[in-house]
Simulated scan of single mutants.
Amino acid sequence: MDNSSSSSRVKQTARTIEFELKQNGPYILAGLGVSGGLLLLANRNIPAIGIPILSSAADRVAYALRWTGLEGISMVTAIWCVIGVRSKYGIEPTSSEGNHHLQMTQRILTNTTESFLAFTAAKLALASVLESNNLRIIPALSGLFILGRYTFDAAINHPARTFGYTINAVATFTAYGLFLYKLLSGGIHSNLLPFSLR
Rank of each mutant, 00 (worst) to 15 (best):
K11C: 02
G36W: 03
N99M: 06
T110G: 04
R9G: 01
S55F: 02
T110Y: 13
P52H: 08
Y27S: 07
R44K: 09
L40N: 05
P93E: 13
R15L: 10
S8D: 11
L29E: 12
A62L: 08
Y63M: 07
H101E: 15
I79G: 02
G36C: 07
S96Q: 14
R107M: 01
S6A: 15
N24T: 10
I46D: 00
I51S: 05
Y27L: 03
S35K: 03
G90H: 09
A14M: 03
L32N: 02
T16L: 09
N43T: 03
I28C: 10
S7E: 03
W67F: 12
I108E: 01
Q106L: 04
W80R: 12
G69C: 12
T94M: 14
G25S: 13
L21A: 07
E71H: 04
I79C: 09
S7D: 12
S6C: 07
S6K: 09
K11A: 10
V82M: 03
V76H: 06
L32E: 07
E71P: 11
P93K: 15
N3C: 06
H101S: 14
D59N: 10
E92H: 13
V10A: 07
P47K: 05
K88D: 05
Q103K: 12
I108S: 02
K22V: 03
T13C: 00
I46T: 08
I73Q: 05
G37V: 04
G36S: 10
G31K: 12
L40S: 10
L29W: 09
R107L: 11
G50D: 01
A57K: 00
K22L: 11
M75V: 14
I53D: 11
Q106W: 03
L102E: 07
T94Y: 12
I79F: 11
F19M: 00
H101K: 06
R107W: 01
L65V: 09
T16Y: 08
V85G: 00
S35L: 04
S4Q: 14
G25W: 12
C81A: 05
S95K: 15
T13W: 05
H101I: 01
A57Y: 01
I51R: 02
V76E: 08
R86W: 06
L32T: 03
H101A: 14
Q23M: 10
G69L: 14
N99Y: 08
E92S: 14
G69I: 13
T16C: 00
Q23H: 03
R86I: 05
G98I: 15
A57S: 10
L70F: 11
N43V: 03
L39D: 06
A58Y: 06
T105L: 03
G72C: 12
A62F: 02
L102W: 05
L65S: 11
